[in-house]
Design a protein around this nucleic acid. Structure first.
Length: 204
DNA sequence: CCACGGATTGGCT
DNA sequence: GCCAATCCGTGGA
């Protein structure tokens, strides 16, 4: 079945604002990928912010490299990186040109194209109840479900291939802030944000 | 040139 | 709860 989604595409001005503000406001927004005629989409329910100026865990902390150069561009581009020899992770670049800031997308609640996501993730057609939330509750899982990889590095999110649809802001009391997951440096920064009680928030 | 380890995941104890 | 898998960007020699 086809879910109806609506909303205006987010423009450059949304992304070029302050990192932590954009991180909070990304919650609830809908990520859309147009995949040769088919549309994959889902609500963002968990993110983490990274800032190379003060954050040792950020890929931009030690300065400009070929890998992280897109993070220094204006906000509204996609930063995709490969890690642990196996997984891609996707980030929304924020801030003005020259600021090495981006937001990692860690949890998504699927809306459209779910059967395609299941195929991409598990190479089968049906999910057990247990696998349902395992579809997109983690950064590597999201990239696998949406087929996002190195070819999408640097993509303009104000274009037509991958973009975000505006949605009402999530109420402040529904947003939880915590420390980030899976890092060894700057572990105390409370820069992980997620929607309270949403089952697509990543575990551990 | 080479060694190291990571913004993860899934499988096994 | 613990740990191996597996690539490649990064930094030091």
């Amino acid at each position: 079945m086809k879910l109806k989604i609506s909303g205006k595409k987010l423009k450059r001005g949304f992304f070029t604002r302050d990192l932590l503000l954009v991180a909070r406001e990304l919650l609830g927004k809908i990520l859309v990928k147009n995949d040769n005629g088919e549309s994959l989409s889902g609500r963002i329910v968990e993110v983490e912010a990274y800032d190379g100026d003060i954050d040792e865990a950020a890929h931009t902390f030690t300065g400009l490299t070929k890998r992280n150069e897109i993070m220094f561009n204006d906000g509204g581009y996609l930063y995709v990186y490969f890690t642990y020899g196996a997984h891609f992770c996707c980030n929304v670049v924020t801030g003005k040109k020259g600021r090495g800031t981006a937001i990692l997308i860690r949890g998504i609640e699927p809306l459209n194209g779910i059967s395609k996501m299941i195929k991409n993730r598990f190479n089968k057609d049906l999910l057990t109840e247990k696998e349902k939330y395992n579809l997109t509750n983690g950064p590597g899982k999201i990239c696998q479900a949406f087929s996002i990889s190195r070819e999408h590095y640097g993509l303009d999110l104000t274009g037509d291939k991958i973009f975000l649809l505006d949605q009402p802001l999530i109420k402040h009391e529904q947003i939880i802030a915590s420390t980030r997951i899976g890092i060894k440096k700057s572990v105390d920064l409370p820069w992980r944000f997620f929607i309270k009680d949403n089952p697509y928030v990543s575990k551990r």
